[in-house]
Nucleic acid binder design. Structure first.
Length: 467
RNA sequence: GCCCCGUUGGUCGACGCAGGUGAAGACGCCGGACUCUCAAUCCGGAGAUCGCGGGUUCGAUUCCCGCACGGGGUACCA
């Protein structure tokens, strides 16, 4: 177990969607292991049976894989529930050694005595010498004096007075163990040398370190990474914030952009750059340099990053990655309506216009739907005088035009000249008639791929609607 | 209440592990160029007394003390 190669772990509990904060911790652990020639172990902390569900575990594994942490990158997954025997033995050792005692106080009893729900346990049963019995929890006896100093790669050496650490419960009245104990025992049995996790666990750390020591082991090195917060500077929560990695994935954030952005929370690569290949991050990232203050998870900036990543994609990759949003459940058209070649023609125009993959659907929908989906605000804005005349002129002019973007553009310009309008104004009603919206891909290229018949049909329909 | 952590422009942060002529860059914002709309791209701009107050010093964002504010924890949750 003594080895200079670090063993780190990522230990999520499968109680919900995979949280972006968890993703960041996983990334930190992974990088630390790789940079030091160590090992990452994945441990699923499934002891809270009432809240666990197998699909959450699968979700975690899938999400990790999406970020690049696939099955080959870690040992495991191990399940905490499989380690129950070790937990029980550790509890017994502590009890026999006099480091833990039974307690029959309920929470209400404690509050009644201390008069404060935040006072913590008052040590009532410490010396009552209670025997094991159903309903009696086992509490760890914390030292009355002295200081517990934890070594933290990010925060230095936070010190905790032992007197302020209450005797905490390690096993419930039914004999099952709690996180505090199970987590430590698993880390011990799995030979973990560095515990890299979120700051919210910092105050648990002295308790856990005391447990390591009481069990006769050398505590690990800790590293508490600051929490990720929302715009109100509160820890991201499942209830009020969008935190599920899966949701971002489904919306069309690229894994590369996401992991790059996540790493920039609290850290930055050298030089005047933020968007860097993963290899640079692997080379330059230093856990010790992570800024200890909480970082705001700025979706706007993530979006900007994502847009840059999308634009940097080779066209073929861009097209391939659009696919999920171009078929049935995501797209409002059928497989028969969809035309791969048409999309390929539109893709280069669309690539600079999407910041998130899911936006591709609405940008090209006009090409696949039988009728464009007319946006009312756009219609009202564009279909003002002399829209009717422009549409009529366009129908007339387009009927015998060579069907190229260039030609359509110059014909439209001519229509504008006849009405004393610039191209910008002239194209507006045509654009809305054909695509349904006031903004979108370059119009004449769009018309070219749409084809003469469908273009004319839409212009006519709009013209009648206007009349 | 108690314990612990944090505090550089709206945001993420660089330089600073340091006492001494500029406090980077990016996102966002504003303006301009380009332009068939919107983007993209390019150019420019606004925006920080480095949380506050004392002290040490010729001089402090950097050292010392105090305070304020924010956050996390304080469960027979994880």
């Amino acid at each position: 177990m003594t080895n200079d190669k670090p063993r780190v772990r990522f230990a999520p509990s499968p109680t919900g969607m995979f949280h972006v904060g968890g993703a960041r911790s996983a990334l930190h652990n992974w990088l630390y292991a790789r940079q030091h020639g160590g090992t990452l172990v994945l441990r699923i902390e499934d002891t809270d049976a009432s809240r666990n569900r197998p699909e959450w575990t699968e979700g975690i594994i899938r999400a990790l894989g999406w970020l690049g942490i696939d099955e080959n990158q870690y040992e495991g997954p191990f399940f905490q529930s499989a380690n129950a025997e070790e937990h029980r033995k550790a509890v017994e050792r502590l009890r026999v050694a006099g480091r833990a005692y039974f307690c029959d106080c309920t929470r209400d009893d404690v509050i009644a005595r201390t008069g404060d729900s935040y006072k913590g346990y008052d040590g009532h049963c410490r010396d009552r010498g209670l025997e094991a019995a159903p309903g009696r929890a086992l509490r760890f006896r914390t030292p009355d004096e002295g200081t517990t100093v934890v070594i933290d790669l990010i925060r230095g050496k936070p010190a905790f007075e032992n007197a302020t650490i209450e005797d905490f419960v390690i096993a419930r009245g039914d004999g099952s163990v709690l996180f505090m104990l199970a987590n430590v025992v698993d880390d011990m049995t799995q030979g973990i040398t560095h515990v890299i996790r979120a700051e919210e666990h910092l105050s648990n750390t002295p308790k856990q370190q005391l447990l390591w020591e009481a069990l006769g082991a050398q505590p690990p090195i800790w590293a508490h990474v600051p929490v990720v917060v929302n715009e109100k500077r509160q820890k991201l929560s499942k209830r009020r914030d969008k935190v599920a990695l899966e949701d971002y994935q489904a919306e069309g954030y690229l894994a590369e952009a996401m992991r790059n952005y996540l790493m920039l929370l609290g850290w930055a690569p050298s030089g005047d750059r933020e968007i860097v290949p993963w290899s640079v991050i692997e080379e330059e990232f230093r856990l010790e340099e992570v800024n200890p203050s909480p970082a705001f998870f700025d979706v706007k900036k993530l979006r900007a990053f994502n847009g840059e990543y999308i634009r940097a994609l080779p066209l073929a990759d861009f097209i391939a990655r659009c696919r999920p949003w171009l078929v049935a459940p995501q797209a409002p058209w059928t497989a028969e309506q969809y035309d791969e070649d048409v999309f390929a023609a539109l893709a280069p125009l669309a690539q600079t216009r999407v910041a998130v993959m899911s936006e591709i659907t609405a940008i090209v929908d006009f090409a696949f739907l039988d009728e464009p989906e007319i946006d009312e605000a756009s219609w009202n804005k564009a279909m003002k005088e002399p829209a009717a005349a422009i549409l009529a002129a366009a129908i007339e002019s387009y009927t015998d035009a060579p069907w190229t973007a260039e030609e359509l553009k110059s014909r439209t310009e001519a229509i504008g000249v006849a009405h004393g309008l610039k191209l910008g104004k002239t194209q507006a009603p045509i654009r809305v008639a054909v695509t349904g919206r006031t903004v979108g891909l370059p119009l004449f290229e769009s018309l070219q791929v749409l084809g003469r018949d469908r273009t004319l049909a839409r212009l006519r329909k709009a013209a009648t609607a206007l009349a």
